[in-house]
């Protein structure tokens, strides 16, 4: 009886946490399948997207990868890098303007920055396409138009991320620096920038993953270029080569590693300081 009531109480206490963990597990099932499929030998029948036989071949022989896949990955990485650099710089500047400066049109700027995050991608993608066609670039869709589009949708996320970090910053710190003989430039580089940097790095990582993963906007504005998500989408119609899962798994492992290393470094530093 006693153990029963105790069990009931325990369940009552942990029910919500348990349900939450179940939800998390649910979100990981498809990832597990991506990992699993990266070890699938599909050489017998390409047209069935189904686990057939375990193999390391997909990982070990990039030379046998489907035509164009590696190119699409490289293109996606290249675009994501360029878009990240541009969006991070422009977005960080804008975030400083929004938090630190009062100017006419600040409200309007705020709305323009918020809107891309709240617009359906299909509408943004088709608008851009309409613009490019109207401006006479309809025949030159490709790397540049993809890059323009990616910077456009990454920008808002950068502004929001850096803004959050910047507005959480105590302005007394900058005043203290100036009080302690730091000029405006020294104050910025010695105090403001190092303190905002984690926000900027976070924004850059977010931009990279948004750009690398984008499909809907890219698909409308890519012309003849094929990015990795477009390759996967196209392959779906012909039969998906298992190698795409190698890329998916590798991406996941790299991203998780970056996050974990960052977290570990933070914890280690904290521990060392506390000792």
């Amino acid at each position: 009886m006693n153990t029963l009531t105790r069990a009931k109480r325990w369940i009552g206490k942990h029910l919500i946490l348990g349900l939450g963990i179940l939800v998390l597990i649910y979100t990981f099932v498809p990832i597990a399948i991506v990992v699993l499929m990266s070890f699938n030998d599909s050489s017998k029948s390409r047209n069935v997207y189904k686990f057939q036989q375990f193999t390391f071949d997909n990982w070990l022989h990039p030379g046998r990868w489907a035509d164009g896949m590696l190119d699409s990955v490289m293109l996606s990485i290249y675009i994501a890098l360029c878009a990240t650099v541009i969006a991070t710089i422009l977005g960080t500047l804008a975030a400083f303007a929004m938090v630190r400066h009062r100017f006419v049109g600040r409200k309007a700027a705020n709305i323009i920055i918020f809107l891309p995050m709240a617009s359906p991608e299909i509408v943004m993608g088709s608008s851009l396409l309409a613009l490019f066609v109207a401006a006479g670039f309809g025949g030159q869709l490709g790397f540049w138009t993809i890059l323009i589009a990616h910077v456009m949708f990454c920008l808002s996320f950068v502004v929001v991320t850096v803004k959050a970090r910047l507005s959480g910053l105590d302005d007394n710190l900058e005043q203290a620096a100036m009080d302690l003989y730091a000029t405006e430039a020294q104050t910025f580089w010695r105090v403001t920038f190092p303190l905002v940097l984690p926000g900027i790095v976070g924004a850059a990582l977010l931009s990279f993953s948004l750009s690398f993963d984008d499909f809907i906007i890219t698909n409308l504005n890519s012309g003849q270029e094929v990015t990795f998500p477009m390759f996967v989408y196209g392959a779906n119609q012909r039969g998906v080569p298992m190698e795409v899962n190698v890329i998916g798994t590798a991406m996941f492992v790299i991203a998780i590693t970056i996050v974990l290393v960052g977290e570990l470094a933070r914890r280690r530093q904290e521990k060392a300081l506390a000792a």
Partner: peptide
């Protein structure tokens, strides 16, 4: 005069120590 040019220093209310 700019704050960094004055021979004056401040102990701030919430200390404003540089966390980094």
């Amino acid at each position: 005069e700019k704050p960094y040019k004055r021979p004056v220093n401040t102990v701030f209310q919430n200390y404003a120590l540089f966390p980094h």
